[in-house]
């Protein structure tokens, strides 16, 4: 019961933070609130029994993403223009509302939150839960799936990060070598590669 209460409260906090982020025109405040949003979602993952996801989100989402955004702000301006309402705002709200309602309608066919009989929990997952600790020899099932059963997937992930790092360096490399302002997303990103 206490777990349900925590989920409800954390989700309400998340919604409030997201609405505050979209309404703020001070970009520093918006980015810091986004860091809080990431940390709140990390807490939610912990309550939802996903500790591995929680600490990755706390380190990467709340840590590295916030640092990267602050670095970008230090290179660009920190205030949003005060004339944010461009043409066609009502139409955009309608598009967002219709998409949201369609998705919410779709959830009516989903198994309920925490339903132990959901199809997702009855076919592939039991095999990993029962066999992976014995077959791989690691107690943490998430680790053994990530690094062993789906090792090639993780290798592909490394390729994605490498490509992104290469892209950032190519984009900003000239700025660094000309020495105009030495703080850049490229070097910060290099740090994130070794962390993961």
């Amino acid at each position: 019961m206490i777990e349900h209460l925590l989920v409800v409260v954390l989700l309400a906090f998340l919604a409030a933070t997201a609405i505050a982020v979209i309404r703020l025109s001070n970009l520093y405040a918006a980015v810091m609130l986004f860091g809080i949003y990431s940390l709140l979602s990390a807490s939610l993952f912990l309550v939802m029994d996903a500790p591995d996801v929680a600490f990755t989100e706390a380190a990467v989402g709340a840590g590295i993403a916030t640092v990267l955004m602050l670095t970008t702000l230090s290179l660009a301006s920190d205030r949003e223009n005060e004339k944010p309402l461009r043409r066609g705002q009502p139409l955009k709200l309608v598009v967002v509302a219709v998409t949201g309602l369609a998705l919410a309608w779709g959830t009516l066919d989903l198994p309920g939150y925490g339903d132990p009989d959901a199809p997702a929990h009855s076919h592939v997952a039991p095999r990993y839960i029962e066999d992976s600790p014995r077959a791989i020899g690691i107690d943490n099932m998430v680790t053994s799936i990530l690094a062993s059963y789906r090792g090639f997937d993780t290798l592909g992930e490394v390729a994605v990060i490498f490509t992104a790092g290469l892209g950032v360096m190519l984009l900003l490399g000239r700025t660094i070598s000309s020495g105009s302002r030495s703080k850049s997303g490229g070097r910060k990103h290099g740090g994130s590669k070794s962390g993961d």
């Binding site: 996903a50 970008t72 839960i129 997937d153 992930e157 790092g165 950032v168 984009l171």
Partner: peptide, 23 residues
């Protein structure tokens, strides 16, 4: 555990795209 693995991968891919966008 399967959604956890999937989301771990997408968190890392997400930070890569964010870094590129900010660049």
């Amino acid at each position: 555990p399967l959604p956890h693995v999937l989301i771990l991968t997408s968190i890392v891919v997400g930070i890569a795209t964010t870094a590129l966008a900010l660049g």
